[in-house]
Simulated scan of single mutants.
Amino acid sequence: MSFNKTILTDPVHLLAFGFGSGLLPKAPGTWGTLVAIPIWLGLSFLSLQHYLLVTLALTVFGIWLCGASSKKLGVHDHGGIVWDEICGYLVTMIALPLTWYWALAGFALFRFFDIIKPWPIKWLDKKVHGGFGIMIDDLIAAVFAAIILQVFYRFIG
């Protein structure tokens, strides 16, 4: 069975690889983040409390999911695993209005911090392993992006 077929037929890999977006040849993290946008759109109609609860549940599930996919592949933090980007984008977008410009700003800032990995993101990426290690660097990048977005939202709304 080919690698792509394995990913697309195994539910663990299918989710971890962002419904196949992580299989795209260039910038899988960017494609995974794009997959997160319609998920955010759907969740944005929830109350803040329910949005936070679902985001937390998806993140906790993601720790297991990313760890399980990584273990099955025998590769720690395979580049195609993008569930961490999906959850990261959802964290980035907490309590922001449903507009194209906030969606774009969140996308750009999250990808920026996920790619450049300022301290402590790079350190965590190298030192923490397993599903938690796969998720934590993206979650911290999301917190950085979310803080900046919330400051802008509060001042320019």
Results as ranks from 00 to 15, higher is better:
residue 2 S to H: 11
residue 3 F to Q: 03
residue 3 F to W: 10
residue 6 T to V: 11
residue 6 T to K: 11
residue 10 D to T: 15
residue 10 D to S: 15
residue 10 D to W: 14
residue 11 P to A: 15
residue 12 V to R: 08
residue 13 H to S: 14
residue 14 L to H: 14
residue 16 A to I: 05
residue 16 A to T: 03
residue 17 F to N: 08
residue 18 G to T: 06
residue 20 G to P: 06
residue 20 G to C: 10
residue 21 S to K: 06
residue 23 L to S: 05
residue 23 L to A: 07
residue 24 L to F: 14
residue 24 L to S: 02
residue 25 P to F: 01
residue 25 P to S: 05
residue 26 K to S: 09
residue 26 K to E: 02
residue 32 G to F: 02
residue 35 V to C: 09
residue 37 I to E: 01
residue 37 I to N: 00
residue 39 I to N: 03
residue 39 I to C: 02
residue 39 I to G: 03
residue 40 W to Y: 15
residue 42 G to K: 12
residue 43 L to K: 09
residue 45 F to R: 13
residue 48 L to Y: 10
residue 49 Q to W: 13
residue 51 Y to Q: 07
residue 52 L to F: 12
residue 53 L to N: 08
residue 54 V to T: 12
residue 55 T to M: 12
residue 55 T to D: 11
residue 59 T to M: 10
residue 61 F to L: 15
residue 63 I to V: 15
residue 64 W to Y: 13
residue 67 G to A: 01
residue 67 G to H: 01
residue 68 A to G: 02
residue 73 L to C: 09
residue 73 L to G: 10
residue 73 L to H: 05
residue 74 G to L: 11
residue 76 H to V: 08
residue 77 D to E: 01
residue 79 G to L: 00
residue 79 G to Y: 00
residue 81 I to M: 03
residue 82 V to T: 00
residue 85 E to Y: 03
residue 85 E to C: 02
residue 87 C to L: 10
residue 87 C to I: 08
residue 87 C to D: 13
residue 88 G to A: 06
residue 90 L to C: 09
residue 91 V to F: 14
residue 91 V to C: 08
residue 92 T to V: 14
residue 93 M to E: 10
residue 100 W to H: 06
residue 101 Y to T: 13
residue 101 Y to W: 15
residue 105 A to K: 09
residue 105 A to T: 09
residue 105 A to Q: 05
residue 108 A to E: 03
residue 114 D to E: 05
residue 117 K to G: 03
residue 119 W to G: 04
residue 121 I to R: 07
residue 121 I to Y: 04
residue 123 W to K: 13
residue 124 L to V: 12
residue 124 L to F: 13
residue 127 K to M: 11
residue 127 K to E: 14
residue 127 K to F: 05
residue 127 K to Q: 13
residue 127 K to N: 14
residue 131 G to R: 06
residue 131 G to K: 05
residue 132 F to E: 04
residue 132 F to V: 11
residue 136 I to Q: 07
residue 137 D to H: 00
residue 138 D to R: 05
residue 141 A to Y: 05
residue 142 A to S: 15
residue 142 A to R: 09
residue 142 A to F: 11
residue 143 V to T: 08
residue 144 F to Q: 11
residue 145 A to S: 14
residue 145 A to I: 10
residue 146 A to N: 15
residue 146 A to G: 13
residue 148 I to H: 04
residue 150 Q to F: 03
residue 151 V to D: 01
residue 152 F to L: 14
residue 153 Y to L: 13
residue 155 F to M: 11
residue 156 I to R: 06
residue 156 I to K: 08
residue 157 G to K: 05
